[in-house]
Amino acid sequence: MTGNRPRTQISAWRPSVAGIAEVFHAEFADHAYPIHTHDTWDLMILDDGSVDFAVDRRRHGAAGAGTVILLPPGVPHDGKTVNPSGFSKRVLYLDTRVLPERLTGAAVDRPVHGDGLLHHRIHQLHGALAHPGDQFEAESRLALVRERLLFHLNASQVRTPGREAGRIAAALRELLDSRIHAGVSLNEAAAILHAHPTHLIRCFKQSYGLPPHTYLTGRRIDRARRLLLAGQRPADVATAVGFYDQAHLNRHFTRHLSVTPARYAALRNRGASPEPTASSADRPESAVGSR
């Protein structure tokens, strides 16, 4: 009989990222939300299945991976599964620091967005939020999500970096280099450099070919390599270079070098490469290929 029970899987947490009140992931086979409201914006991506919902007494439907749904604060809404296969979703509850309440009307008029770029950016944001210590990346990805949402709500236009891009990018790189261990939030960097957060990101990427959070991680990995080869323990290295913990260091280090910090540290005990053996170094020149 257990196998006949409705399939429900839920996870939820509150990340350390300003503007995000909660992250909520759910998979429902059969569920109906009663009509209710939130004091936050409800930003949902549908990963699978179909949903039927009403916003301000107007019904809407959404189906298939890639769909984005935005529900404003204070507006009554409900939601339910459409078929036996149910649906799975990932939700970000955003406060009014991310989107102002004055945009409620525009969101009510068009709650469903079939925007592949927006969906991809939200997916990337969820990935960053899943790992403690990746706040700078999450802040950067949230800024780009916010920009895209404002575009859909007819509240902003994307600003393309101009002649100032190199100067702003160099100033941000200098700031990141001075904060490798302590780190810096995106909003703090924007305030110090007197630039909009998303403009900072675009200027940096245009000038250096990678986003600022990726640059900072790479600098931390470089420092970690030196400390590991100097004999420090991975757990000590993680905190010394600014990672959240050893697991955080392990994940990024392995992505960069395909080995764990512990295995990399073990290389120091091997010493220099041995001298070539006579069978290779003393081989007659004609046998080596002196054509």
Rank of each mutant, 00 (worst) to 15 (best):
R5G: 00
W13G: 03
F28C: 10
A29Y: 00
H31N: 13
A32W: 15
V51T: 01
D52Y: 13
R57I: 02
R57T: 14
R58Q: 11
G61W: 08
T67S: 15
V68S: 02
P76I: 01
P76N: 01
H77D: 00
T81G: 15
S88E: 11
K89W: 04
K89C: 11
R90T: 07
T96L: 07
R110Y: 06
G116K: 11
L117Y: 07
Q124N: 11
A128H: 11
L129E: 09
H131T: 14
D134H: 13
Q135A: 15
L142E: 01
A143V: 06
L153T: 03
L153M: 08
A155V: 04
A155M: 02
S156Q: 14
G166R: 15
R167A: 15
A170K: 14
A171H: 13
L172N: 06
L175F: 03
L186A: 08
A189Q: 03
A190M: 09
A191G: 04
I192W: 01
I192A: 12
H194W: 02
L200G: 11
L200T: 11
G209H: 06
P211S: 11
L216I: 12
T217P: 06
R220L: 06
R226Y: 00
L229F: 06
V241Q: 07
G242Q: 08
F243P: 07
Q246M: 12
H248W: 08
N250F: 10
N250C: 06
R251I: 06
H252K: 08
A262C: 06
A262R: 11
Y264I: 13
A266I: 00
S279W: 02
